[in-house]
């Protein structure tokens, strides 16, 4: 296969970037998208040029590192597939492929196609946990959880923190991600004691990071490689409004 790649190159966070065009031939349809970029990079290094930087690691679709905007779609054209699991057979010879980094004020570019997604970590620092220390916990089977709740919580927990939802959203909103985290704990009995404070703290941090607001376009759901549902966002809204309007946070004295 022959391809023309238009790749965003940007030296660092502060530098201004631009598209650079690369021609590549000898692409096998069995290659993954990242392996195709590996080949391009190897060619660049041979010419003593700097390779294209992109985040990747497990290449099994689970670590959430890879994050490329391919022809205007996060992770490319294939549904429920991360960039690393996208194969070149999804393209045709002669295609021009535009590759951009995730774009959001909360995801500053590190270099070329790699962005800094630590904002997603900070949202979880704010409350994405159950406050339980090591040791002294009850036996695992002391808490029975209805299967439907366990399954629903699991569906939320499958989020890989890749940020495709932010990339896909026209408002660069992180609500699908945050709501998946809020939902997992809101559903499970283990998460109940800090349920409302958690929703408030995580939403507050999300806003501080500069993410946009949700306008319910649902592009996040369509582009999520793990098919996280927007019902999580509805749940987060419930949790948050419940916390803000209905919960009394002070003991009566």
């Amino acid at each position: 296969m022959n391809l023309t790649l238009k790749v965003w190159r940007q030296k660092n966070r502060k530098a201004s970037g631009k598209f650079v065009t690369y021609k590549t031939d000898d692409v096998s349809p069995d290659m993954s998208f990242l392996e195709m970029l590996d080949v391009v990079n190897e060619g660049l290094v041979k010419k003593q040029e700097e390779p294209i930087q992109f985040d990747h690691d497990c290449r099994e679709g689970i670590c959430g590192s890879c994050a490329l905007m391919i022809n205007g779609q996060p992770h490319g054209p294939k549904k429920a597939t991360t960039t690393c699991q996208l194969h070149m057979r999804s393209f045709n010879t002669g295609d021009t492929i535009v590759i951009e980094p995730w774009r959001s004020v909360a995801f500053p570019v590190v270099k070329d196609l790699a962005v800094d997604r630590s904002s997603l970590d900070r949202i979880q620092h704010a409350g994405g946990y159950v406050s339980v220390g090591t040791g002294g916990v009850p036996d695992a089977n002391e808490i029975a959880i209805p299967k439907v709740i366990a399954d629903e919580a699991f569906n939320s927990a499958t989020c890989i923190q890749c940020g495709a939802c932010v990339a896909a959203c026209k408002n660069a909103s992180a609500m699908l991600f945050v709501s998946a985290k809020v939902s997992q704990y809101a559903l499970l009995p283990q998460g109940q004691t800090e349920r409302y404070e958690r929703a408030q703290a995580m939403v507050l941090q999300m806003d501080e990071e500069g993410f946009g607001g949700c306008t319910n376009t649902y592009q996040c759901e369509a582009e999520c490689p793990k098919e996280i549902k927007v019902t999580n966002i509805a749940r987060m809204n419930r949790e948050y409004f419940n916390a803000e309007f209905l919960q009394d946070k002070k003991a009566h004295v």
């Binding site: 946990y129 029975a144 299967k147 366990a150 919580a153 699991f154």
Partner: peptide
């Protein structure tokens, strides 16, 4: 102890219809 610890943290292990692991 590991299983107890993970469940307490909210790790969603597979469960049966009775709600147990």
């Amino acid at each position: 102890n590991i299983i107890d610890q993970c469940v307490a943290q909210g790790v969603p292990f597979a469960r049966e219809y009775g709600g147990l692991l």
